[in-house]
């Protein structure tokens, strides 16, 4: 019988080990970040022509363009992060390890979240550069963090299901997008609020909902992850 504090430290150690493994693998291959980054840039370029982003239009759609970009780039990240585990049987190895399985889940969530936030933080100045606007806004950064947490938590759970099916990477966006709509809605609302310098009172409902969603989805995913990786 381990003491609770010892159990907690071993849980955190397991989470940290998985994050470290993913970061080290990414540092050596640089496959994931570079493809997410290039993909995100391409999406912004396509939007430029699709929506004709002149200043009057931009004020209304910037938050939308950013979030669609993040969501699409995030799908690549999520797919890749789970597919590499599945491909070479790493997932089975991880599951055999004598650690709590939710440690694997949180490890994966944290490493994917780091990749996604990196892409987002690099995309912002690019967008600002292209359109000559300053998007550096602490409120917006907070919304990006909160929105990405919810997105990655649900995404990691669903992508660990998707990689175990025959259709694999095609399936992830189909099962993920209808579920994350509330997260996306509140993130968009809050981002729009911060970008248009609304009063905090007007942004607060969306921001509160976003925090609540993060908590709810993290709790649910935490509870059901065991069933998803069970053999």
């Amino acid at each position: 019988m381990k003491s609770p504090s010892l159990a907690r430290s071993s849980f955190l150690k397991a989470v940290a080990a998985i994050v470290q493994k993913d970061l080290a693998a990414e540092y050596r291959s640089r496959e994931l970040l570079s493809s997410m980054m290039v993909f995100a840039l391409l999406v912004i370029f396509i939007f430029n022509y699709a929506l004709n982003l002149e200043p009057s239009v931009r004020a209304k759609v910037t938050a939308g363009v950013l979030w669609v970009t993040f969501v699409f780039a995030g799908t690549i990240g999520l797919n890749r992060s789970m597919a590499v585990e599945k491909d070479r049987g790493c997932l089975d190895g991880l599951l055999l390890a004598p650690v709590d399985r939710t440690a694997i889940f949180f490890g994966k969530v944290i490493s994917t979240l780091i990749f996604m936030l990196l892409v987002e933080v690099i995309m912002l100045p690019f967008y600002g550069l292209f359109y000559n606007v300053n998007l550096f806004n602490p409120g917006l950064l907070l919304v990006m963090l909160l929105g990405s947490i919810g997105y990655v938590v649900v995404g990691t759970l669903l992508s660990s299901m998707a990689v175990q099916t025959r259709t694999r990477d095609i399936l992830l966006p189909i099962i993920l997008f209808p579920i994350i709509i509330p997260i996306l809605l509140s993130a968009l609302d809050a981002s729009n609020g911060f970008l248009n310098n609304l009063e905090f009172d007007l942004i607060q409902p969306a921001l509160g909902l976003l925090v609540a969603l993060d908590v709810i989805f993290t709790a649910v995913s935490f509870m059901v992850f065991d069933y998803v990786v069970e053999e």
């Binding site: 649900v154 759970l157 669903l158 299901m161 579920i179 709509i181 809605l185 969306a206 649910v220 059901v224």
Partner: peptide, 24 residues
Amino acid sequence: ARFGAVYTLIGAVSVPITFMAIRL
């Protein structure tokens, strides 16, 4: 069956919140 059950559960959580969120 397991994946189906997990997915309906996640959907059952998400749909009411979607309704609320749009209702804002």
